[in-house]
């Protein structure tokens, strides 16, 4: 399977998310993926993301959220990562705000890769040492190094 670090570019790592609200945060995270052409239809991509968020929260608890969508509006599987020191309300089951947010975008016909990526990211982010290292990372390169170390 493709490694998480191969799906995440430095440009898609935002260590100081400005947005405070869930939907605005997802927009902010999606911007680099739109800019580099991975998301080919922003409107359609957002419709897919919002449909899922409206159905059920993608906040998995422990300060983590993984908004995700598999849609024709995406050219290839890619990630964006953002850190929100202020915390964002993703309506997580544990009621806690999310500080580490991974956006996962995948083409409609790449279901296996999409599921594998979700599983890999979820597993990584539940490790206390990974969360601590991502919280302390000072540069996008640091984030990639942390993920490469623990993957």
């Amino acid at each position: 399977m493709t490694r998480v670090t191969e799906l995440l570019s430095q440009e898609a790592i935002l260590l100081h998310l400005e947005a405070k609200e869930k939907i605005a945060v997802i927009h902010e995270l999606a911007r680099p993926l739109v800019k580099n052409g991975i998301v080919t239809n922003e409107k359609e991509f957002f419709a897919a993301i919002l449909r899922r968020e409206n159905l059920e929260s993608t906040g998995i608890g422990l300060g983590i959220a993984i908004p995700h969508a598999r849609t024709k509006a995406v050219k290839e599987t890619a990630l964006a990562f953002g850190r929100a020191d202020h915390g964002v309300d993703f309506s997580s089951l544990d009621g806690k705000p999310s500080h580490l947010i991974f956006l996962i975008a995948a083409p409609e016909d790449k279901k296996t890769e999409y599921i594998m990526t979700l599983a890999r990211v979820s597993k990584l982010l539940r490790k206390d040492e990974v969360k601590a290292a991502l919280t302390k990372a000072e540069t996008p390169k640091d984030v990639l190094n942390v993920l490469a170390q623990y993957e």
Partner: peptide, 11 residues
């Protein structure tokens, strides 16, 4: 095991 469990859950 954890990765496999997440795979099943996300499916």
């Amino acid at each position: 095991t954890e990765e496999n469990a997440w795979k099943i859950l996300y499916e």
